Simulated scan of single mutants.
Amino acid sequence: MDFNFLSPVSDLVLAHNALLSSQALGSKLRIHSKNQGIPDLDAVGIAIIGVLENRNDVNYIGEEFNLNEIRKSFYGLFPGSWSSVVADLGDIEKGERVEDTYFALKSIVSALLKLNIIPVIIGGTQDLTYATYRAYDDVIPMVNIVNVDCKFDMGDSSKPMKNNSFVGKIILDEPYNLFNYATIGYQTYFNSQEEIDLMDQLYFESYRLGEVSNDISLVEPAVRDANIVSIDLNSVKGSEVSLNQKFSPNGLDGKEICAIARYAGISNKVTSLGIYEYKPSKDDEMTAMLVSQMLWYFIEGVNLRVRDDDFADENSYQKFITLVDSQELIFYKSNKTGRWWIEIPFLADVNNKLKRHTLLSCTHQDYIDACSNIIPERWYKAFRKNSV
């Protein structure tokens, strides 16, 4: 396995780590250091990778950055009662070209996925999500992506890819592996009407900031169905972050972004997490601490995973059937966790992407709505996408 692309965690961070409490996270991690080299990955469940690539930022003016402050903050936190072994594999430096960085990230993510290790990428620009997505090409046939962002990032895919247009590239580039794309926390005034219409036409999901702030649990089913969760730090409101990081007075607050990170951890399907658009500044403590807490909640979530989506054992779930407009909807509720799913029917006469009855995560409210003759929107979009 080729880890030559990775450079070790800086001596500065390791010197800081040596001064921390022996109970802190820094002494529990397997860290890639200059002296010790790449740590043993045996029994590792989660691997943190920094990617120092920001050249595809639409506002790039040649600035460099590092992740030292995030590491210092993260290493100083105290772990929960976790069984997962976490490694910090250091950083992927900028390649000669941006494509070289993509290749390095794709290779490492693909290798980690095959070892059943969850890669957690902390990066510069969010176009790195494209490289992560391509790492799944020979791992699973269809991929669901959740993007926590104030923008859809569709962009003009006929132009070279930037951090505001990587989703268009994901949709249009072969092989076509994208099944669902959901944006959480979008703000309408940052998105053109054409992009909003395109999201609807493609039956992709979008959750407005107001909806999410009103009830954060709304987004749990979308995150539960995701394979890749990509978080843009510009989705966080300006008052929660450091000077350079401030983007908009409106956005998700610290509790909400950490709740989403925890949902991603708890999901049995999420196999990679990315936190992007980090921009250090002189007063960096706030952003570094927020990213550290997001990482903490994700790892906490992974340690709380429960296999509740195996419906082979009839004693492990309850089944509910309801009629909506002469359409039979079948719901399942896990006895272990109380989480809900809805069945998407198999359509024999179409070129079906899923080839079997597929269960889609949903909420108890979706079942209540179905009983009142309201078709759940997630089900409708998945059914339509499955019929195309």
Rank of each mutant, 00 (worst) to 15 (best):
E194R: 14
I171L: 14
G62Q: 08
L19R: 13
S73H: 08
L323A: 04
M161Q: 10
L329K: 07
W296Q: 08
Y133A: 11
Y136L: 13
S372M: 11
P249F: 07
D197C: 01
Y367E: 01
T271P: 01
F190N: 10
R97W: 07
G210A: 14
L172F: 09
T101P: 03
T101H: 09
S239F: 07
T287Q: 03
F247H: 13
T287E: 02
A222G: 03
R384F: 00
W340R: 06
N4L: 08
S83Y: 04
S267C: 04
G274M: 13
H364M: 09
E194C: 06
G274H: 03
S165T: 12
Q293V: 01
P221M: 02
Y263W: 02
D349W: 11
I228P: 06
E240W: 00
R71W: 01
F247P: 00
S158T: 15
M1Y: 09
Y317I: 08
D40Q: 06
M289Y: 09
I48H: 02
S27F: 09
I216D: 03
M154H: 11
R134T: 15
G123Q: 01
A288T: 05
V167L: 12
L172R: 13
I368S: 08
Y136I: 08
V146M: 02
K255W: 06
R384H: 05
G62P: 08
R71M: 02
S21W: 11
A18L: 09
N147C: 05
E240C: 12
I368N: 08
I145H: 05
L360C: 08
V109L: 10
K255E: 12
K159E: 07
G80F: 07
V139H: 12
L198Q: 14
S21E: 12
S239V: 08
I108H: 10
F346Y: 15
I49C: 10
S10M: 01
M161S: 07
P249I: 14
V302D: 00
T188A: 15
S242A: 11
L290F: 04
T287A: 01
D149N: 13
D309S: 15
P39D: 04
G90H: 04
S7D: 03
E96S: 04
D156E: 12
G123M: 00
F383M: 10
I228M: 12
L172G: 03
S239I: 09
E314C: 06
K72F: 00
Y136R: 13
V85K: 14
I31C: 05
L41T: 05
V98W: 07
V302W: 00
Y130D: 02
V291N: 03
E205C: 04
Q187F: 01
L19I: 04
A312S: 15
L202D: 01
L25R: 11
R71V: 03
L67C: 02
S206C: 09
P39K: 06
Y203I: 00
K151D: 00
T125W: 04
E194T: 15
F74Q: 03
I117F: 05
A47V: 06
D313K: 09
E314A: 10
F74L: 14
E195L: 09
S239K: 11
N373H: 12
S316W: 02
L198T: 14
T322D: 00
I140H: 10
L14V: 07
V388K: 11
K333Q: 15
E205Q: 12
V143M: 07
N17S: 05
L304R: 14
D2C: 10
